[in-house]
Computed example of a mutant assay.
Amino acid sequence: MIKLKAQDAGLSIAEFTRRSVLLKPLPRRLSKITLATYRELVRIGNNINQLTRATNTAIKMGVQPPVYPYQLQELRNLLQQIGRELSSIETEVIDDDDDDIDDEDSEEWE
């Protein structure tokens, strides 16, 4: 039974036992939609980093930047807000549906 629970949690038996004995939380499940959303946010973040780098280089060279720093700051703030909202939504879904999670193929571990 312990082996199955460890596999379901995506942990080794030793790690699962340590977490259980020490009352540490197990990784929480994330839906495929949430994972896809997080991945897309990472891609957007990477694009913003590239824009930031290009903007800083353009400013140092004294040429017109591709975007203005205040626009990058607005994008950053929006992404942080979306991330916070996703975290709170995912927590609510997990709290509401925690006992109903049976389909291992439809969900992954964080």
Rank of each mutant, 00 (worst) to 15 (best):
I2L: 09
D99C: 06
T37D: 05
T91H: 12
D102A: 08
G62C: 01
I82E: 08
W109P: 00
V93M: 10
L22K: 15
K24H: 13
L72N: 04
K32E: 10
D95C: 05
M1S: 14
N47S: 09
I48H: 03
Q64W: 03
S12R: 06
V67T: 06
I13K: 15
Q71M: 14
D102P: 01
L41E: 11
N46R: 14
K5Y: 08
R29D: 12
E40C: 06
D100W: 08
S87M: 10
D95T: 12
Q7T: 07
Q71F: 06
A58Y: 00
N47K: 12
A36V: 04
T91F: 11
G10P: 02
G45Q: 11
R19P: 00
I101A: 10
I2M: 07
I13D: 15
L35G: 04
P66E: 01
A58R: 00
N46D: 09
L78H: 07
V93H: 13
V63M: 01
L75A: 15
D96V: 14
T91W: 08
A54C: 01
I94G: 03
L11G: 02
D97T: 14
E92C: 06
S20T: 15
L79S: 05
L41G: 03
K3V: 08
D105W: 11
R28D: 13
N49T: 04
Q64Y: 06
A14P: 02
R28S: 14
D96A: 15
V93P: 01
N77W: 05
I44D: 06
L11K: 03
G10K: 05
N46S: 10
D95E: 15
P27R: 06
I101W: 11
R43C: 03
A36H: 07
T37N: 06
G62T: 01
L72Q: 05
N77M: 07
R76Q: 12
L30I: 15
T57I: 05
E108S: 10
L23E: 14
T17M: 07
K60P: 02
A14N: 10
D95N: 15
L51F: 01
T55F: 00
A36W: 04
R18D: 12
Y68E: 12
S20Q: 13
Y70S: 13
V93I: 14
E110Y: 10
Q80I: 08
G10D: 04
Q64V: 11
R39C: 09
D100F: 14
E40R: 11
E110G: 13
I82N: 05
T34M: 07
K5I: 02
Q81N: 09
K24Y: 10
E104L: 13
K5F: 06
I94D: 13
Q71N: 09
I44Y: 05
D102K: 14
I13H: 09
V67K: 01
